[in-house]
């Protein structure tokens, strides 16, 4: 079943068309179709092991799909050469599950790396941009710390600062709240909402945290592990009210229904 968000729809930022994902002969997901619009906080949800993270890896160009299309605003991601793909992805930022900060570099060096490569900023300006990004995620003054010296939640926020380094207009999050205490998870949710409103960016969030899903998501897709495809698409709050699919209801109500 499909519930579309209402009225005045902004332009699509990312469209997934008949996408199939497989590891060799082993099909993970098939026939995925959904559209992520500008300014959406789009949730990819589903039980453990259903292929949420793998779907994200396909969307950010790390794993090629076995069929179908991933259409960014700028064009197809996979039916093109590597340079075009790199150009499309330069406008996307990714926050990995554990932050994936480069462990041999300080936080400042981590964030400065893409800036040094893709901008013509002078070193002093880069330092200032880095300080700004760290301040935005609440880590002002942590420039010279190594990832191993800060906590898991701080690593995630630093990862977010690095993902935002090139001012992407679409940001991917893999399980932002995994391993965080409820307060930190909530702070991260608020940060995402804040950034969406101020940067006008689009967010794609892979999660199974119900609290986050309802707090920030305005559009979503539910991946079902049994049928290996998507079984619902739309605003998670509306899905909770209107869906009649027992599996989805089971998920959205923490198994109470």
């Amino acid at each position: 079943m499909t519930l579309q968000p209402e009225a005045q729809e902004p332009a699509p930022r990312l469209t997934v068309d008949h996408l199939d994902i497989a590891y060799g002969d082993f099909v993970i997901m098939r026939d995925l179709n959904f559209t992520i619009r500008r300014g959406d906080i789009f949730i990819i949800m589903g039980g453990s092991g259903c292929g949420k993270s793998t779907l994200m890896r396909v969307l950010v160009g790390l794993k090629s799909p076995s069929g179908g299309e991933v259409l960014y605003e700028e064009g197809s991601l996979w039916r093109t050469d590597e340079d075009t793909r790199a150009a499309i992805l330069r406008r996307a930022g990714v926050l990995f599950q554990s932050g994936a900060l480069f462990s041999s570099m300080t936080l400042a060096e981590n964030i400065a790396l893409p800036l040094q490569q893709y901008t013509r900023l002078r070193p002093r300006d880069i330092r200032e941009v880095v300080a700004l990004k760290l301040a935005l995620v609440g880590l002002a003054g942590f420039e010279d710390f190594y990832p191993s010296e800060i906590s898991g939640g701080m690593c995630k926020r630093a990862g977010l600062a690095r993902a935002m380094a090139l001012d992407p207009d679409i940001l991917f999050f893999d399980e932002p709240s995994a391993g965080l205490d409820p307060v930190s998870a909530n702070l991260l949710d608020e940060l995402i909402l804040e950034l969406r409103d101020s940067l006008k960016a689009t967010f794609v969030v892979v999660t199974h945290e119900l609290a986050s899903i309802f707090a920030i998501g305005n559009n979503s897709v539910y991946l079902d592990v049994e049928t290996r495809t998507m079984t619902a698409h739309g605003d998670p709050k509306k899905l909770l009210e209107e869906s009649t699919d027992p599996v989805l209801r089971h998920f959205l109500t923490r198994g109470k229904e």
Binding site: R57, V60, G61, L62, A86, L89, R90, A92, G93, V94, F96, Q97, S98, A100, L101, F102, S103, L113, P114, Q117, Y118, R162
Partner: peptide, 17 residues
Amino acid sequence: GTMQVNEEIDALRTFGF
């Protein structure tokens, strides 16, 4: 190998390196 486990190599790829 540790960078691979830690998704650091994926992160590099997403930056186009």
